[in-house]
Amino acid sequence: MTVETVVVVSTTDAMDAAFAGIGCWLLQSDGRTKPLSVDRWQQPPDLHDHRLFLDDVHDETVDVGCGPGRLVGALSARGIRSLGIDISGEAVRQTRDRGARAVQGDIIGGLHGVGQWDRALLADGNIGIGGDPVTLLHRVADLLRPGGRVVVEVARHGVGVVTERLRLQVGRELTPDFSWSVVGSDAIAGIGDAAGFEVEDVRESGGRHAAVLVKRPA
């Protein structure tokens, strides 16, 4: 009997593979699996991206978890000073190929441009990074000028806050498990308040939702 070998790889390596076009699966803690559909993030921004994140942006913006740069690329094309941050070197390369600025890094472990930005984006559920939305928003607050805004994509009303342990699989390669949170529109006000933000607006487009949070004065 042959035992299949499972190779453990880093989350960064798995995301690099996914953005390079290799099939990647998300393994949930309840045993469910689903494909990580990075192809949507590699397309130009759609109508709902524009309505939720782009149309009203005229100031300096940092995109946290930018992926291959569809949002920051669109902002850069409009001449808006912007920066993408992502753990994946391949995502950063693709963002730069769009003509946008991007750096490889982890918002939890290090900051890029403290106090320099008017706006931050947490699209595509990136409020879940690290499984601790309050800590994540504290890090984002450090990036923003006083009165700065963060636009957070959230789940539908009634979800609350759900945190679970996930893994990624590429072929026979698995990542260690990591924490990820899903935050509903009903819970973002409390999370924002704990991190020093107030809700200015909640938007909906095409079944997607985003909350605009304003950084309170120190």
Rank of each mutant, 00 (worst) to 15 (best):
V3R: 14
E4K: 14
V9G: 05
T11V: 10
A14M: 10
M15F: 12
A17K: 03
A18C: 06
G21E: 03
C24P: 13
W25C: 06
W25K: 06
L27A: 09
L27N: 09
D30G: 06
P35R: 14
L36S: 10
S37C: 14
Q42G: 15
Q43G: 05
D55H: 02
V57T: 12
V57F: 13
E60V: 06
G73Q: 03
R78H: 09
R81G: 11
S82T: 05
I85F: 12
I85C: 11
D86C: 06
I87Y: 10
G89P: 07
Q94Y: 14
Q94P: 03
D97Q: 11
A102N: 12
G105I: 04
Q116E: 14
D118N: 15
D118W: 14
L121S: 07
I127F: 02
I127D: 01
V134A: 09
T135D: 00
L136M: 00
L137M: 05
V140Y: 12
D142M: 15
L143G: 03
L144P: 00
R145I: 15
P146Q: 08
G147L: 01
V150H: 04
V154L: 02
R156D: 15
R156Y: 14
G158Q: 00
G160C: 04
G160K: 03
G160F: 01
V161C: 09
V162I: 12
L166W: 14
R167A: 12
R167I: 03
Q169F: 10
G171P: 12
R172K: 08
T175Y: 12
T175V: 14
A187E: 04
A187I: 00
G196I: 02
V202T: 09
R208H: 09
K215N: 03
R216C: 08
P217F: 11
P217R: 14
